[in-house]
């Protein structure tokens, strides 16, 4: 294993992670909700009266975050090389998988592990290992992008 010292950004990652953790803590303490993006978005597809507006508001906050960031500093590079067919397949899998698995990187990975939920710890291990295995196959076995 070789560490990518060129792209390694521990401080930015740590500070950004702490902001994400702050958001997760505040959403539970203020609104009593888990900051799991797939759960919040998925809930919009099964609308429950009185539980829709806050979901839209949260998603709207995510959507405007690049614009707000851009007011203070130039937006860091967002490099997305995948082609459209791959993006569509990946999007379908991410959407379906996150709902069947009852959570994604935020709901299980941040909130669930913070609550020491055995379900979330297992789910996080599973999707990280599967993600690593997928990248291994695509990059080193198939030799693609």
């Amino acid at each position: 294993m070789t560490i990518d010292t060129l792209h390694f950004t521990p401080w930015a990652a740590l500070i950004g992670g702490m902001l994400i953790g702050t958001a997760a803590a505040l959403l539970m303490l203020i609104n009593g909700r888990i900051a799991g993006v797939s759960g919040i978005v998925g809930g919009l597809l099964r609308p429950v009266p009185g539980s829709t507006l806050w979901r839209f508001a949260f998603v709207f906050g995510l959507l405007v975050s690049p614009m707000v960031f851009g007011l203070f500093a130039p937006l860091p590079p967002i490099q997305l090389d995948s082609g459209y067919p791959l993006l569509i397949v990946a999007g379908l899998l991410v959407g379906m998988g996150a709902r069947y698995g009852a959570g994604c990187t935020s709901g299980h990975g941040i909130c669930g592990i913070s609550r020491l939920s055995p379900r979330s710890i297992l789910a996080t291990l599973l999707f990280m290992l599967t993600g690593m295995a997928t990248v291994f196959v695509v990059r080193h076995v198939l030799g693609g992008a």
């Binding site: 993006v37 899998l93 996080t124 993600g131």
Partner: peptide, 16 residues
């Protein structure tokens, strides 16, 4: 669900 999610995440590098 988590395995399917990991597969999609590994393909595009994007989560929700």
């Amino acid at each position: 669900g988590s395995v399917l999610f990991g597969l999609g995440w590994g393909l595009a590098g994007i989560c929700p």
